[in-house]
Computed example of a mutant assay.
Amino acid sequence: MAGERTGGRERGRGGVRGGADFVAVLPPEVSSRIFGDLDVESLCQASVACKGWHRVIEGNEGLWRHHCLSARAVCQREVDCDRGNGYSWKITLLRNYWKSKVKQEWLSGKYSNIPSQKSLPEKSMYPMDADTWGEILEAELER
């Protein structure tokens, strides 16, 4: 199992060790393109997988910008404020990702007909400011 030798390479939990890392052999733009196809959670996991991947992912604001602009579709005021305050795309995304997910669910009416607090899913709440709750209440009143 872990640590067993296979074909001259040591096989561990993460797969074949000693194999070529695609980030080390591919041009940076190709590696960025591959990472660009990941969702936010997978991108965060990949950034802590190894030092090489971390260096490429953390050094590429475009990877984070793409996802941050998706969150901005729901949390425009919050994202614009963070960017105006000088936060990087990554930090802006990390500050607004879950808020945008929860806010989108509320705005879409997912929780409009919930009979009690106990019926709410675990991730239905997130710290939001009064303006955000105002947007949600206006959407509810329009339904």
Rank of each mutant, 00 (worst) to 15 (best):
S47V: 01
S116A: 11
L26R: 13
N96I: 03
G134Y: 07
P121V: 04
E58W: 05
M128W: 06
G12D: 11
A139V: 03
G18R: 12
R77H: 14
H54E: 09
L137R: 11
V48C: 05
A24W: 13
G52S: 15
E10Y: 13
E142C: 12
Y97A: 02
C50K: 02
L38M: 03
K51Y: 05
E105G: 07
D131V: 06
W64F: 08
E61I: 06
P27M: 06
D82C: 11
S108R: 12
L141E: 07
G109I: 02
E10F: 12
A130L: 09
R55K: 10
G62W: 04
W89L: 05
D37V: 04
A46Q: 07
C75P: 01
V23M: 09
E135I: 00
R5L: 07
E29H: 06
A71L: 04
S70Q: 15
R77M: 13
Y97D: 05
E29N: 07
Q45E: 11
V74D: 12
G3P: 09
V102P: 06
G18L: 14
I91L: 12
W106T: 00
K51S: 12
V30R: 14
A71M: 06
T6S: 10
K110R: 08
S88K: 08
E122R: 07
R17T: 15
E58R: 14
P27W: 14
L63T: 07
K103Q: 07
G134F: 00
D129W: 07
